[in-house]
Simulated assay, not measured.
Amino acid sequence: MAVPREAGKDEQGPAMPNPAARTAVGPMTIVAAAQWGPQEHRIHEDKLAYGFLPAATRAIVSLTRWEPARRALFNATESRAKGLWAEMLCRKRYVDDKLRAAVTAGVDNVVILGAGLDTLAYRRPVPAGTAVFEVDQPDTISYKKKAVTRALGKMPATVTLVPIDFQKENLREVLTAHGYRSGGRTFFVWEAVTQYLTEDAVRSCFTFLSQASAGSELVFTYVRKDFLDGITLYGAEGAYLDFVMKNRLWQFGMNPDQVEGFLADYSWMVKEQLGGKEFTARYVAPSGSRLPVTDIEQSCYAVKS
């Protein structure tokens, strides 16, 4: 069973011609398929994931309610990068946990950068008066609007979809034009995006983040630079050949010991970083499963000083 990567044409949604935009489908395919697994071993709960997928992908995922088909999809994913399946589930669980804590503490805005087909804005209701902004490429935003409307009946009034070209447009200007106000505390999510950007584009986004109010929070992920450089492949030779060498989709990376200094330049303080070992201890082991978790991607939580 192949790992779905492209949205293709859905009966309710357009094609996604941009190569990076097409990768939005893969993670949510894994999330949706994982929901068919045993409840007691489930790492991440997401009942909306299936409904947000394109029709062709939903047809594939519907087969995974049977364990042999689910195992086939798992094996296809792991053949590209051992531990990728669990890492995707863990990083989404981590974002969920951090958002839940932030909402409890009180935030004024939630901004999801590179939202893809993620369901976070629709699964985790925020208090009245808290605005949620989903930011992504125009192709993805166009599809997302149709997918949400198909799955939920209409777009929630609290969520604003914001189309942007991260490489060319000014993030602050685009968000402001869609109603974002930076005066209050904001919870930012930037999941599985930085590797697709140039360093200049990443720094441009951090320049925007440097203007956030003190006490704002950020969860973001990055791919390890030693992996992108081909120094250590972490059992992910297939992903390296596909994303780095062949299609050259992944461009930017950091190593864990670089992150604190990088973020400090933009007045953000790193509070914790999680890779395979940490995710295993926090989420996988308590679930009773024995899934490996890859180290090629790391998750970081930071607070604005």
Rank of each mutant, 00 (worst) to 15 (best):
Q137G: 11
V95E: 03
P68W: 03
D136P: 02
A101M: 14
L84F: 14
L73W: 03
G114L: 10
Q137D: 02
P127R: 02
C90T: 06
D139N: 12
T104A: 15
Y50V: 01
E45K: 02
R58P: 07
V135Y: 00
G129P: 02
F74D: 08
R100G: 04
K47P: 15
A101W: 04
A81Y: 13
W36M: 11
G37F: 15
L48E: 03
A128R: 05
G114N: 10
L113E: 04
Q35G: 04
Q137H: 14
T104F: 13
V107Q: 07
Q39T: 15
V61T: 07
L84N: 07
F74E: 00
V132S: 00
D136F: 13
K92D: 09
H44K: 14
P125C: 04
V135P: 09
N109R: 06
A86H: 08
A105K: 15
D139I: 04
G106V: 11
V103F: 10
R80N: 12
W85F: 09
E134G: 09
V111S: 12
L120N: 15
P54W: 03
V107T: 10
R123H: 10
G106R: 07
L99R: 13
V103N: 02
R71L: 11
V110Y: 06
F52N: 10
P138D: 03
V135A: 04
E45W: 05
I43Y: 01
D108E: 06
V132I: 05
R80M: 12
L113R: 05
S79M: 09
A55P: 01
D118L: 03
T77E: 00
D118H: 08
K47R: 14
A105S: 08
N109W: 12
L113M: 05
A105N: 13
V126F: 08
A69R: 00
L117I: 10
V132H: 00
R80D: 15
T57W: 04
A105Q: 12
V110Q: 04
R65Y: 10
M88K: 12
P127G: 09
A121G: 13
C90L: 07
V126K: 09
K47A: 13
N109M: 00
A55Q: 07
L120G: 12
T119R: 06
D118R: 00
R58K: 15
